[in-house]
Design a protein around this nucleic acid. Structure first.
Lengths: 339, 339
DNA sequence: CTGAAAGCGCTTACAG
DNA sequence: CTGAAAGCGCTTACAG
């Protein structure tokens, strides 16, 4: 294995001091143009790259961001929530554009992640993505904040919780999609998905749903059925729901993954969609448009979300005050709502 | 901001030397059990984490792997090939299990990536994922090898090309899926996707396809239509194909993404699938089962693939000889082939 | 504009 | 089993 060149090697070849090499490579205005060019030429020739570890150690930062992904406890080993996956792309790109590397890691809520990254100087800040029991989550967030770790999270906005959050307008999305169904004449509503503070995003969607029903004066016969964000959970939730309430004509799902399971359960029960029961989801994941029937849902702008996440984190690292950010959502109308 | 504790702080608190702290934290058998436990307790209490930059600098490695993802030049900013995405999960997990961090980055084939990672000690090795013009790719691979960089790539196996490759049996997959169609009585075949050395994986699939047709003695009327791996490209390729060959009854696609476009084009042309034309894909991406009709395709085990990629890279880093690896594929029969 | 020197926080021979 | 010391490869005051 060829020895890696160091700045001393370059200095030697260029006939200057190592300090000058370092300056020249960083384009310091302090160094003479000719010297700088000579040094850079030699560096290129010797295939020299600044050693990140040394540079980071000296400068006390890592120019790296860590993306921590939490998974639903039930998802199998292979599956990542497609919604988060779509954010991954823009986060990666935004980090790169800002000159930061991106470390990615899947975590369990129970892991010791809250201390790992920034404390060991592996990353200058952390992006938190994922659902999970909010109560448990919250404790860790508090610790993170106590350690002065820089972090942003994707999730429900909540003034009480620690740190800064970027999230979409779950309430409005739940409201809009329910109103859409109401406008189409639906009356007997069911919401499938957790609707309590352990899952604040789902809860906000539920509250939007409930608000729309209340304004339309049909809230009294609305029902709710728990489910976590997987296809299987949506499937079995539907079966239970149908048993308890065979008369419903509209199902609002807390996520597309749930909705996909609902669609399958209804089909297996020989219930026509949307004629007998209309179904809507939330997230606009890629399969939503391929489902049969195609799924009416609420779209969150994942590209923008990734960019804002990175931008906010960078500003936090720079020491600025950063506010929560509420992202606008859009209704995507397809066949499953019967529009 | 609270000052971060260093090993000297721990040493001070524990009343031992800093060397001993370092040893104790790394569980060195050299240090007395009591001393070790005392040191570890204090470290925990002070929330001390070994500084990665210092440790890596000293040990001359980074304990991180870099995952470089190349994209099709035409894909828009948001979309990552879902096939690679599904490998991401297992690569991340496998790295973590081996105690390595994972850096991820999207690259253009034209970027200067071949020198960036290992040379700057950011990563101990590189995993290359993605399609792209093989000719251009190959040059970079040669440079990588010349620099003694540790890398593995996902792709076609080819003894001539530099480095070690892990790939699925594209030839067999192309053969199997074509044979499946042949068994169902199809006679007039078309292959949609690039079939030349710039895209060796597609080419191998094509060759498997062609071999099956040759054995069945129907190769003389088989056609091929270029397309890159996107839905849109599959769509327009189908339209051109139909114009040239209205008589075909089976389309073998080089990828699922292409197949999804083909399905849409046939539907828009009022051609029934699979009655008039049977369609098959390759990859078994998540939407394949949601397409209408659901797509018969070839499944590559992405979980295994990710594990083997990481394992091979780690062995390369450890200085072992590593062989290419050909992964087995499975036919997934759904509706689009008319079975 | 340039150089000599200190120091970032570790790990690990070396000596005891 | 433990400590004093060197050194990984940089960046950056400090002095000129």
């Amino acid at each position: 294995m060829k020895e890696k060149a160091t700045s001393f090697d370059i200095a030697h070849h260029a006939g200057v001091s190592q300090s000058t090499v370092s300056r020249a490579l960083r384009n310091s205005p302090l160094v003479n143009k000719e010297t700088r060019e000579k040094v850079q030429a030699i560096a290129r020739e010797l295939n020299y790259k600044v050693d990140k570890n040394a540079s980071n150690l000296r400068r006390q930062h890592s120019k790296t961001l860590a993306l921590l992904l939490f998974e639903d406890p039930t998802s199998d080993n292979s599956l990542i929530n497609p919604f988060f996956l779509s954010m991954l792309g823009s986060i990666t790109r935004a980090s790169a554009n800002a000159g930061y590397d991106l470390l990615i890691s899947f975590q369990n809520l129970s892991d010791d992640w809250h201390a790992e990254y920034e404390d060991s100087n592996k990353a200058d800040g952390i992006i938190l993505l994922g659902y999970g029991d909010y109560t448990e989550y919250c404790t860790k967030l508090t610790q993170l904040e106590a350690q002065n770790t820089h972090f942003v999270r994707w999730g429900a906005l909540d003034d009480e919780h620690p740190g800064v959050s970027i999230g979409c307008d779950n309430f409005q999305g739940g409201f809009d999609v329910t109103q859409h169904l109401l406008d189409l004449g639906r009356k007997q509503f069911a919401f499938i998905g957790g609707a309590d503070s352990r899952a604040p995003e789902f809860f906000a969607r539920y509250q939007g749903y409930y608000k729309a029903l209340t304004l339309a004066d049909v809230a009294q016969c609305a029902v709710q059925q728990d489910a976590i964000s997987t296809e299987d959970s949506g499937y079995s939730a539907t079966l239970s729901l149908l048993k308890r309430h065979p008369d419903i004509d509209a199902i609002v799902c807390a996520s597309d993954l749930i909705a996909i399971g609902v669609l399958r359960a209804l089909r297996d029960s020989n219930i026509s969609i949307p004629q007998q029961i209309a179904v809507v989801g939330f997230d606009n994941v890629p399969v939503a448009s391929f489902a049969t029937p195609s799924l009416t849902t609420v779209k969150q702008d994942t590209i923008l979300a990734g960019e804002i996440l990175v931008d906010s984190l960078l500003r936090l690292i720079a020491g600025e005050e950063v506010e929560h950010y509420l992202m606008h959502v859009d209704l995507v109308i397809r066949q499953s709502s019967g529009a």
